[in-house]
């Protein structure tokens, strides 16, 4: 996809000629389901609408029908469309207080197991996985862990596995790591080459990346800790409920679930099966 300037991406203003009401959106959703077997029907409508507008800004389609025709005939485009419509923003040590809580309240409990199994659901470009690996390394647990990191977007998974990030992001990341209070310097975990930050590949020694769709997804393994942060905000309540059930079923006894700092499990049907470890940091533990 052509590059967009990060700061000045606009909503509908650049395509006032195209109407994207519920009829048009539902039409697009129906076509994507047909051609790519991907179901956006339980995604949050507000952000879905904006994301489709964004595609309409990047590509000079004259109408919804033109977009739909392309979706029908060009599988490569459809794959790109799905990736473009989903949101990938992430950071190393995003919400530093969250990582402090993982370090101080969750890892000591996981440390009692011989093997630790962690699932990052919706890992995007991998920053969350590296944050976890660094936190585990500093707790001396990295060699006892098996991490599975999944996403629907193959492109971000490749980026995650490579671990190269633009240098300009690292001021923010360094700052996050400092607030987190890591034992070293963040720069101890990467080297700089050709203007890009290259994460130390050893951090990924026990990490497996794979494609996994949370929509309709079924239990594929059991984990001590599942992280799914800032993914369910793009889903409606129905889908949030389904996905949180999947997480509950994917946890071992007393396993932990972490969601984004502004997400809540309270209206999900499994909410009573969890005890709150940290309300501020949205960490829950499965009751038995």
């Amino acid at each position: 996809m052509p590059e967009q300037n990060q700061g000045v991406w606009n909503t509908q203003r650049n395509r006032p000629d195209i109407r994207l009401g519920f009829d048009e959106l539902n039409y697009i959703i129906k076509i994507i389901k047909e051609v790519a077997d991907f179901d956006f029907s339980h995604y949050a409508a507000s952000s879905f609408q904006r994301r489709v507008y964004r595609v309409l800004e990047i590509y000079p389609f004259k109408s919804v029908q033109e977009l739909v025709n392309r979706l029908r005939t060009d599988a490569q485009f459809t794959a790109e469309f799905i990736e473009e419509v989903t949101v990938n923003t992430t950071e190393l040590f995003r919400d530093p207080e969250f990582w402090q809580e993982i370090r101080d309240s969750v890892l000591p409990s996981l440390a009692q197991h011989r093997n630790i199994h962690i699932w990052h659901a919706g890992c995007s470009t991998g920053e969350e996985v590296y944050s976890m690996a660094i936190t585990l390394a500093e707790a001396g647990l990295l060699d006892r862990v098996k991490i599975t990191a999944t996403d629907i977007n193959e492109t971000v998974i490749k980026t995650a596995a490579r671990g190269h990030y633009p240098e300009r992001l690292f001021k923010l990341y360094d700052n996050n790591y400092r607030i987190f209070g890591g034992k070293k310097e963040l720069s101890d975990y990467y080297k700089i080459e050709n203007g890009s930050i290259r994460m130390n590949p050893e951090l990924l020694a026990n990490v497996k990346f794979r494609h996994f769709n949370l929509v309709g997804g079924e239990v594929f393994s059991k984990f001590d800790l599942v992280l799914c942060r800032n993914v369910m905000i793009y889903f409606d309540k129905v889908l949030q409920d389904q996905v949180s059930k999947l997480f509950y079923s994917s946890l071992f006894k007393y396993g932990f679930l972490a969601v984004g700092s502004k997400e809540s499990l309270i209206w999900c049907s499994v909410s009573h099966k969890f005890k709150t470890i940290s309300n501020d940091n949205k960490i829950y533990q499965a009751r038995v």
Partner: peptide, 24 residues
């Protein structure tokens, strides 16, 4: 909330998102 876009969904509830910044 800081660092999230805030929108309204039909059905009278909020929805948050971490999409790109708009006008920085």
């Amino acid at each position: 909330p800081a660092n999230y876009h805030l929108s309204i969904e039909l059905g009278n509830h909020f929805s948050l998102s971490t999409e790109e910044m708009v006008s920085y």
